[in-house]
Deep mutational scan, measured.
Amino acid sequence: TFTSIVTTNPDFGGFEFYVEAGQQFDDSAYEEAYGVSVPSAVVEEMNAKAAQLKDGEWLNVSHE
């Protein structure tokens, strides 16, 4: 299960995956970082959410 939350205070020191406002979700980078295949429906969902981000916001993507 993939989830996401919007934050204005990303923790770059941890093992977190963020999408910056104005960027798209990079499923290849996510797969490389976590060894998890990302279904195309999830990629579309995360890109739709990322498109709604305002300046200074980040989308924190995770999975269980």
Rank of each mutant, 00 (worst) to 15 (best):
21 A>D: 02
60 N>R: 15
33 A>K: 15
46 M>Q: 02
13 G>V: 07
22 G>D: 02
19 V>F: 03
49 K>Q: 10
27 D>R: 15
49 K>I: 14
64 E>G: 13
52 Q>T: 10
12 F>M: 09
1 T>H: 15
59 L>A: 00
18 Y>I: 05
5 I>C: 15
27 D>C: 14
40 S>A: 14
44 E>I: 12
3 T>R: 08
50 A>D: 01
12 F>H: 09
21 A>K: 10
62 S>C: 10
60 N>P: 02
54 K>P: 02
22 G>M: 06
29 A>N: 05
20 E>F: 05
57 E>L: 00
39 P>S: 06
18 Y>C: 03
23 Q>G: 14
36 V>W: 00
5 I>G: 09
14 G>N: 09
16 E>A: 10
21 A>W: 10
53 L>A: 02
27 D>H: 15
63 H>Q: 06
62 S>L: 11
28 S>K: 15
54 K>L: 10
16 E>G: 15
33 A>G: 05
37 S>M: 12
48 A>Q: 12
52 Q>K: 12
9 N>E: 13
44 E>D: 13
7 T>W: 00
3 T>F: 10
12 F>I: 08
7 T>Q: 04
31 E>H: 10
26 D>I: 07
63 H>W: 11
8 T>E: 09
41 A>Q: 13
41 A>H: 14
63 H>D: 02
33 A>I: 15
39 P>V: 03
11 D>E: 10
35 G>E: 04
49 K>A: 08
37 S>Q: 13
4 S>D: 08
35 G>D: 05
39 P>Y: 00
63 H>F: 13
36 V>N: 03
41 A>T: 11
10 P>Y: 01
50 A>F: 00
33 A>F: 13
19 V>R: 00
28 S>H: 15
43 V>I: 14
55 D>C: 09
62 S>I: 14
31 E>L: 13
32 E>Q: 13
50 A>I: 08
59 L>E: 01
35 G>A: 06
5 I>K: 09
6 V>S: 05
26 D>S: 08
61 V>L: 04
20 E>A: 15
60 N>L: 15
39 P>M: 00
8 T>V: 10
61 V>M: 01
45 E>F: 07
20 E>C: 08
42 V>H: 03
24 Q>E: 11
22 G>Q: 06
27 D>P: 15
13 G>S: 14
30 Y>C: 02
57 E>P: 00
15 F>G: 15
28 S>V: 15
4 S>I: 06
45 E>Y: 07
34 Y>E: 00
37 S>W: 10
3 T>A: 08
31 E>N: 09
33 A>S: 09
22 G>S: 04
63 H>A: 04
1 T>N: 15
56 G>S: 04
20 E>K: 12
25 F>R: 00
32 E>Y: 10
48 A>I: 12
26 D>W: 06
18 Y>R: 00
55 D>E: 14
7 T>H: 03
18 Y>M: 04
27 D>Q: 15
19 V>D: 02
1 T>P: 11
39 P>I: 03
25 F>P: 01
21 A>G: 05
40 S>Q: 14
60 N>E: 11
43 V>C: 06
16 E>H: 13
16 E>W: 12
39 P>G: 04
12 F>C: 09
64 E>W: 04
28 S>F: 11
35 G>M: 06
28 S>D: 12
45 E>V: 07
52 Q>E: 11
35 G>C: 09
39 P>A: 04
27 D>M: 12
62 S>G: 09
30 Y>P: 01
53 L>I: 04
17 F>A: 03
54 K>N: 10
36 V>S: 04
7 T>E: 07
7 T>M: 06
38 V>P: 06
26 D>G: 04
6 V>H: 00
23 Q>E: 11
22 G>W: 04
38 V>M: 05
45 E>R: 07
34 Y>K: 10
53 L>N: 02
57 E>D: 04
10 P>A: 04
2 F>I: 11
34 Y>H: 09
54 K>W: 03
37 S>D: 07
55 D>K: 13
4 S>R: 00
33 A>T: 12
54 K>Q: 11
24 Q>I: 12
42 V>P: 02
47 N>S: 07
14 G>W: 08
62 S>F: 14
5 I>L: 12
41 A>L: 10
61 V>H: 02
58 W>Y: 11
32 E>A: 14
50 A>E: 03
58 W>I: 01
47 N>H: 05
19 V>Q: 01
38 V>T: 03
1 T>C: 15
14 G>F: 05
28 S>A: 15
2 F>K: 07
57 E>Y: 05
48 A>S: 10
24 Q>W: 12
25 F>E: 00
52 Q>R: 10
18 Y>H: 05
48 A>R: 13
53 L>T: 03
58 W>H: 02
34 Y>N: 06
10 P>H: 06
42 V>C: 06
44 E>G: 08
25 F>D: 01
49 K>T: 06
7 T>F: 00
36 V>P: 02
33 A>L: 15
58 W>D: 02
60 N>C: 14
7 T>S: 06
55 D>H: 09
38 V>D: 02
31 E>V: 07
37 S>V: 13
43 V>A: 09
55 D>F: 08
42 V>I: 12
31 E>F: 15
6 V>G: 03
48 A>P: 01
25 F>G: 02
7 T>Y: 00
27 D>W: 15
41 A>D: 12
60 N>T: 12
20 E>S: 11
44 E>C: 09
22 G>T: 03
44 E>T: 12
26 D>F: 05
30 Y>L: 01
19 V>M: 06
56 G>R: 03
50 A>L: 09
51 A>H: 08
60 N>A: 15
12 F>V: 07
23 Q>Y: 11
41 A>N: 13
5 I>S: 14
37 S>F: 11
51 A>Q: 10
41 A>E: 14
51 A>D: 05
49 K>S: 06
23 Q>P: 00
62 S>T: 13
40 S>H: 13
62 S>E: 03
40 S>M: 13
56 G>N: 08
11 D>T: 11
11 D>N: 13
51 A>P: 04
39 P>D: 04
15 F>V: 12
3 T>V: 14
29 A>M: 09
9 N>G: 07
30 Y>I: 02
20 E>P: 14
17 F>W: 10
16 E>Y: 14
13 G>A: 10
20 E>D: 05
3 T>M: 10
59 L>M: 06
59 L>V: 02
3 T>G: 08
20 E>H: 08
59 L>H: 02
30 Y>S: 02
43 V>F: 06
46 M>K: 01
52 Q>A: 14
46 M>S: 02
6 V>C: 08
46 M>D: 01
31 E>I: 06
39 P>H: 01
24 Q>H: 12
18 Y>V: 04
21 A>L: 05
15 F>T: 13
5 I>W: 08
37 S>K: 15
39 P>N: 04
53 L>F: 00
13 G>P: 05
26 D>K: 05
11 D>K: 11
54 K>R: 12
62 S>D: 03
32 E>I: 12
51 A>L: 08
40 S>W: 08
